[in-house]
């Protein structure tokens, strides 16, 4: 069976152990996690996790079923029609061409967000595929450090 990329949202009770239950499930059953983000859902006792994973259709189906089986899981959404975004922070030496960097970031919904004595930090927020392109494009400005946030998604 063909391996596919899937974005899965999991709505869980925001309680102790819940992240460990989810990540432990992936580790224990040998499922792949490409990215995982988690944060509380405002004004509820719930958290929203977005997980990007890869596997064949049977594995993906098992992942959603096993996630649902966890007692604190309220909802599992295997996304098809979604808005997907990711953020990335990149640190550049101050000697690089800052106007170029600024222009590049702007093309990816970002900009320079911090300037220090020896470096600048730039930010971009876009679709995961475009973030990948952005990172490739930053290579020529000798990035010192790159931090990606992982994907968040919302069904349309």
């Amino acid at each position: 069976m063909e391996t596919v990329r899937r974005v899965i949202s999991v709505v869980v009770l925001n309680e102790a152990q819940v992240l460990a239950r989810v990540s432990g499930l992936f580790a224990g059953r040998g499922y792949n996690i490409e990215t995982l983000t988690v944060a509380p859902i405002p004004e509820t006792d719930l958290s929203h996790m977005t997980i990007v994973t890869r596997g064949n259709q049977r594995v993906i189906e098992q992942i959603t079923k096993q996630l649902h089986k966890l007692i604190p899981t309220l909802k599992v959404i295997e996304h098809s029609e979604m808005v997907e975004k990711e953020m990335v922070l990149v640190k550049f030496p101050i000697e690089e061409k800052l106007s170029d960097i600024q222009t590049l970031c702007a093309a990816y919904n970002g900009g320079i967000v911090n300037v220090g004595e020896n470096m600048v930090i730039a930010m971009a927020a876009d679709e995961p595929m475009r973030i990948k392109h952005f990172i490739t494009a930053t290579k020529r400005y000798n990035p010192i450090e790159i931090v990606r946030s992982g994907v968040v998604a919302m069904e349309r």
Binding site: Q17, G24, I71
Partner: peptide, 16 residues
């Protein structure tokens, strides 16, 4: 205990 038994219980609790 909850960490160790997570994968071999249906559910587990540590009472806080």
């Amino acid at each position: 205990a909850v960490g160790i038994s997570r994968a071999c219980t249906k559910h587990n609790y540590l009472v806080h």
